[in-house]
Design a protein around this nucleic acid. Structure first.
Lengths: 121, 121
DNA sequence: TTGCAAGGTTACCAAATGGAAACTCGAAAC
DNA sequence: GTTTCGAGTTTCCATTTGGTAACCTTGCAA
């Protein structure tokens, strides 16, 4: 006899999925790291590269352009010599910080779980 | 004159980055959707497929295996006929739910911003 | 007049990823 | 007999990613 499909008591709302939409914005490689590095104030391109050593210039540029496009960061060119560019979070971007906070917390738990697992082996 | 590199007032802690670690766990396609569908209780494989129509069996299997491996979901085979398999969140998995909640909230803001942008065009 | 800094861009390449569709397996229902 | 169901697995393929490295521009400084 076929099993009954139980109704999901926590269904996803119909239409475009808000979760999938937002993950499209923050899901790329290094994206959350960039937002995380901007949480305490504006940073320049080369500062971000130093903050996140493994990121390449190409990917950092791509992420910043995407985040600008989606309204998460803003870009300000300053007339220094040579000109420098400051990136900062918009209000929308600031809303992402608590979400990333929670992810970081779980990351810490994962770290402790994994180090415990190692020492047990 | 070279610009001074400003100290990041919110630096990432040295060593393995908790953020990158956790994103490695939840970063795959559909991963957060799966966790989200499990937040209200256990679901079977085919229920999850129905919950998330665009996911393929291959990817759903892969995600569930990874999440099991990282301790986020648990897998229980029930001796029905044919045997059915129930997936549920572990305690660690439950900790991810608030993070995903926050992401969903930002997703809703993105939706309203984008629909506003459309109607303005 | 050469060189460096800042902030990129471009071309090329390899690996990883995800989708589609077909196939498996054991029991049970028709 | 053979079809169905749940839960996958397997194969093949196209696309998407991301990395590397070289190159560009402008103005100032040595």
């Amino acid at each position: 006899m076929a099993l009954k499909m139980r109704r999901n008591h926590a269904p996803q709302p119909p239409g475009e999925c808000a979760l999938t939409l937002c993950m499209g914005v923050i899901g790329g490689a290094w994206t959350v790291n960039v937002i995380w590095c901007l949480r305490a104030g504006p940073r320049r391109f080369s500062e971000l590269r130093a903050d996140i050593p493994p990121i390449s210039a190409k990917v950092l540029t791509a992420r910043l352009r995407e985040l600008e496009e989606s309204g998460v960061v803003s870009r300000l060119v300053k007339p220094t010599s040579p000109p420098s560019v400051e990136y900062s979070l918009t209000d929308l971007g600031a809303e992402l910080v608590p979400a990333i906070d929670s992810i970081v917390s779980v990351g810490h738990r994962l770290k402790s779980i994994r180090s415990g697992r190692e020492s047990a082996v």
